[in-house]
């Protein structure tokens, strides 16, 4: 019975092709919802920020005569110090993360075998706990009478100065919070190097260091660069670490932006700062991403 009806549709009436105008192609059709959503939820807000950055200072409407006043005050003021702090802290974080994560990524990709999945999960879990809660855990660790100093006191009788509220602790907090963002792309990169290619280099007389330099490093570069990019961008946009762990000793650019929006109620100035930050970050991301083919990195074929 089923066979007969199937046969009928095959040989019987063939459905007419839809007019070409309606055929968007399956790829484009599937992309429509997310593109529409991101236009409303991502592109439009960014345009709003850009719009606000040209409004007269300390106003809240979007339909006034545009002015460059905010940008002028940004460039004549002291915001560049905050910018430099943000970039500097970001760079320090990324360098430390590279050193910390490479051996772990190497292990996950090559050595740990079936344990890799469990370890990966262990590194993933903290991602889902609010950043400020986790940073708070570090305060409990480093604070006077906390886990570290309390233990020290109980064992040696003296309590050293707390390290809280120093630049070093801010970097530690950022390294801690953004570690998975360096680790996972790096692991992906390291696992992209075929075992036979490394064996071949070794077999052709290369030493361990030469195999690393000539084969491992260049071939895992896409993953490593993406890890650098992700953690750098996130670290530059960080705010809680400096505020909570650093005790506002250092004011990163994101903090400046927040102050403009909240305490000083100067939305246009805050917007101008945000636009500059977006330009730096956006340019960096597009510049780096442009050089990579995401299909190869994410494992198509």
């Amino acid at each position: 019975m089923a066979e007969i009806s199937a046969h009928e549709t095959v040989s019987g009436q063939l459905p007419a092709a839809k007019p070409a105008a309606w055929r968007l192609g399956p790829g484009r059709a599937n992309a429509v919802p997310i593109i529409l959503f991101l236009l409303i939820g991502f592109a439009a807000p960014l345009l709003a920020v850009i719009g606000y950055s040209f409004m007269p200072p300390r106003t809240f409407g979007l339909w006034q005569t545009p002015t460059l006043e905010n940008y002028v005050s940004v460039f004549t003021g002291t915001s560049y110090i905050s910018f430099l702090w943000s970039l500097g802290l970001g760079a320090a974080t990324v360098l430390l993360l590279a050193v910390i994560c490479y051996p772990v990524a190497y292990g996950l990709a090559r050595v740990f075998g079936r344990w890799s999945t469990l370890l990966t999960l262990l590194f993933t879990i903290p991602l889902f706990v609010s950043e400020n809660v986790r940073i708070y855990g570090w305060i409990l660790f480093f604070i006077k009478n906390g886990v570290l100093l309390g233990t020290f006191k109980a064992w040696f009788g003296v309590e050293p100065e707390s390290w809280l509220f120093t630049q070093g602790i801010i970097v530690l907090g950022m390294v801690y919070v953004y570690l998975p963002f360096m680790l996972f792309p790096m692991t992906l990169g390291v696992s992209m190097v075929p075992k036979e290619t490394r064996d071949a280099a070794f077999d052709l007389g290369a030493t361990r260091w030469q195999v690393f330099k000539e084969v491992d490093l260049p071939l895992s570069m896409p993953g490593i660069v993406i890890g650098f990019l992700l953690s750098f961008v996130l670290a530059v946009g960080a705010i809680a670490e400096a505020k909570v762990l650093g005790g506002q000793k250092v004011i990163p650019i994101t903090h400046d932006i927040e102050i403009a929006f909240t305490y000083s109620q100067n939305w246009p100035l805050g917007s101008a700062l945000a636009v500059l930050l977006m330009l730096v970050v956006g340019a960096l991301v597009l510049l780096v991403l442009r050089r990579f083919d995401l299909d190869t990195i994410l494992g198509r074929r």
Partner: peptide
């Protein structure tokens, strides 16, 4: 690349942008 852009975006700035919007 465009779809991935929001992931790379500082969330605090994104939050403010949405507030403005």
């Amino acid at each position: 690349k465009l779809v991935l852009l929001p992931i790379f975006f500082p969330q605090s700035v994104l939050g403010l942008a949405l507030l403005l919007w």
